[in-house]
Nucleic acid binder design. Structure first.
Ligand SMILES: [Mn+2]
Ligand SMILES: [Mn+2]
Ligand SMILES: [Mn+2]
Ligand SMILES: [Mn+2]
Lengths: 147, 147
DNA sequence: TACAAAGTTTAGCATAGGCTAACTTATATG
DNA sequence: CATATAAGTTAGCCTATGCTAAACTTTGTA
């Protein structure tokens, strides 16, 4: 039946977007962690649990559990009671993520929002920006530089 | 100590962004559900579990469980084996969400991405856009209408 | 009207990502 | 160098969000 076909097509089209969102969200935490670990290593030579917990606004135990998953995923290495390191994959993910994050944040600034708003909104938005949209943002940015 | 103070301030500043993202994410599913229920009622007079499941790309049982939470939150009403309805709060959330979603999607179009990309990316981005950013997007949109 | 198909619900399971409290290890300081 | 404090870990709990399989209800049709 033509109507059922159309219903199925609509559903498939729409569900694709939600599937992408769910995929984005499962990658999100790992991306934020490795980016933050890289920042801490750059800023002060090492990344410790406590710093991550404070910057993320979560409990220490939460960080420990998450780091275990990231270690299993091959993004992070650690010894008990010692600082946290990134693997090669971890560094790559951190750098890609940081580049993307900066484009999104600067794009929001160029669009005219405050520095606080750009910082806060970009933390969530960055994970849902496709390659195409990122390119469009970068193009806008090059035509509308931040003052 | 001055250094410790600075560290604490940095952490508080950064953690605010992640707290916002976590809050956005806990509101997200409810927003998507009520928006979709409203769409289905508009399009075909009623919203059924199966349609939601197909459009969201999840199993039927997942929808049933989520609807129970939404009912507890006072957004939705339902009788066993019957269609799903929105409460007053549910309608309000659906309409606010749809308005915001449309601004974000049209903004991406105006920025120059394809219709597919705008549809897909906006599904995640919409939940992380603050009132300020939404206003900036609307301003851009009014100055750069979609062809 | 009887029954098959379609739709809905329940039960039971899993993982992610939060939390607190209690415990263990490392480090800084007198 | 002894020990108090800071840092890290473990255990046990919780909720949200996904799944499959099985049971139940409604509905369309022979
Ligand atoms: Mn980031
Ligand atoms: Mn982020
Ligand atoms: Mn959405
Ligand atoms: Mn998100």
């Amino acid at each position: 039946m033509a109507l059922a076909n159309k219903k199925g097509a609509t559903a498939k089209l729409r569900s694709a977007a939600f599937k992408r969102v769910r995929a984005d969200h499962s990658a999100e935490l790992a991306g934020d962690y490795v980016e933050m670990i890289a920042d801490l290593i750059d800023e002060r030579g090492e990344a410790r649990c406590t710093d991550l917990a404070m910057r993320l606004g979560v409990a220490n135990a939460t960080v420990v559990k998450t780091l275990k998953r990231l270690t299993d995923q091959g993004l992070v290495t650690q010894e008990p009671y010692r600082a946290i390191f990134l693997t090669g994959d971890g560094w790559k993910m951190a750098e890609d993520g940081k580049r993307k994050h900066m484009v999104v944040e600067n794009f929001l600034l160029a669009l005219g929002v405050s520095a606080d708003t750009a910082r806060i909104d970009s933390e969530g938005i960055e994970h849902h920006v496709s390659a195409d949209t990122l390119k469009a943002m970068a193009r806008f940015l090059s035509r509308n530089p931040i003052n």
